[in-house]
C-alpha cells in the first residue's frame, strides 16, 4: 500500500455544518472518501491509502486542484482507494464536499 498525507492552508472554511460523511465504496476502479469536520477552519488534510504504487504526483495534482476550487477548510479527508481513475477521484471529492454543505434539518 502507498500512503500519502497532504496538508493545505485554505482561504475559507468549508460550507455547511455536517460533521462527517462517507461517499463511494472501496471497489475496483472506485474509492471511498470520508470527510470529517475536525480541523481548524483554514486547514485541510487529505490522507490517501492506495494499492496502486507510484502515483503520488497524480494524487497531488488532483487533490490540489480540488482544494483550490472549493477551499475545504476544517475538513479532514481520508481516502481508501481501490484503483480509481483521477476523474472518479475528483467526482467523489466534489460529491462529498457537496453533501457536507447540506445543513442539518
Amino acid at each position: 500500500m502507498d500512503n500519502l498525507k497532504l496538508s493545505y492552508a485554505t482561504r475559507t472554511p468549508a460550507a455547511g455544518d455536517r460533521q462527517s460523511v462517507l461517499v463511494g465504496v472501496v471497489a475496483s476502479g472506485n474509492l471511498e472518501v470520508l470527510f470529517e469536520r475536525k480541523l481548524a477552519p483554514h486547514e485541510c488534510v487529505v490522507e490517501i491509502a492506495t494499492p496502486i504504487h507510484g502515483y503520488d504526483e497524480v494524487w497531488k495534482a488532483v487533490v490540489e486542484d480540488f482544494v483550490e476550487r472549493v477551499s475545504p477548510g476544517g475538513l479532514y479527508i481520508s481516502i481508501n482507494d481501490g484503483g480509481a481513475r483521477p476523474d472518479i477521484v475528483a467526482l467523489r471529492l466534489m460529491q462529498g464536499v457537496k453533501t457536507m454543505e447540506v445543513n442539518h434539518e
Binding site: L22, V25, V26, E32, A49, T50, P51, D81, G82
Partner: peptide, 13 residues
C-alpha cells in the same frame, strides 16, 4: 488486509 496489500474500508463493508 494490509498483509495482502489490499485496501481497507472504514466500515469493513
Amino acid at each position: 488486509l494490509a498483509l495482502f496489500d489490499l485496501p481497507v474500508a472504514f466500515d469493513d463493508g
